[in-house]
């Protein structure tokens, strides 16, 4: 019934699962925290945007309706990605969209030499920061999937297979 064979060793699976839950937890809370704070808006973050996406950020800020659409998509996107990772549901889509979203965050405020931000940075960063690392960790998870071993995708794959058999 399992459509993916577990080729991981016990330890590989354990840490891949742990990474999946940790990132899922983080993104889910980021989304929910925004949802619970009625005053949250991405404007503060977008105002800081300086590199290649600064034009995009300005465009978003310029129009309140675009800004609120971006806020909405961001909040619910984070929640959906977080749930997808934790539950192992639509896992690859969730992990890859998470990767894209985090890379967008990174490109808005990359810690490049010569770019200074008024917001204090989390730790000391040179070109690489934690957002970028989290993005690539998500990419790794997408290409070392665990959701069909432990996750809702296993069930869904089963259903799909049954349908095909019928």
């Amino acid at each position: 019934m399992l459509n993916m064979k577990n080729t991981y060793t016990r330890w590989q699976l354990l840490f891949l699962m742990a990474l999946r839950f940790l990132i899922g937890w983080h993104l889910l809370y980021e989304g929910i925290a925004k949802l619970l704070n009625p005053q949250w808006s991405s404007i503060g973050f977008l105002k800081e945007s300086q590199w290649i996406l600064s034009g995009f950020a300005k465009w978003v800020i310029s129009d309140p309706s675009i800004l609120s659409a971006v806020d909405f998509l961001n909040t619910w996107g984070l929640i959906a990605i977080g749930l997808g990772l934790i539950l192992g549901m639509f896992f690859r889509v969730a992990a890859l969209s998470g990767f894209v979203l985090l890379v967008v965050y990174y490109f808005n405020c990359p810690p490049l030499v010569g770019i200074e931000y008024s917001l204090p940075a989390d730790g000391n960063n040179l070109i690489v920061n934690k957002t970028l690392i989290e993005a690539f960790a998500l990419a790794v998870l997408a290409f070392f999937p665990t959701s069909r071993i432990l996750g809702m995708d296993a069930l869904m794959a089963g259903w799909k297979k049954k349908k095909e058999e019928k």
Binding site: M1, F21, W25, Y29, L87, G88, D153, L155
Partner: peptide
């Protein structure tokens, strides 16, 4: 037996979500 095991495995994320809910 395999079905039951599959369902159980599919639910692996639920305890994590439960913990998350309590934390939240």
């Amino acid at each position: 037996d395999m079905k039951r095991r599959t369902v159980l495995k599919a639910m692996a994320g639920l305890p994590v979500l439960g913990l998350f809910g309590i934390g939240l």
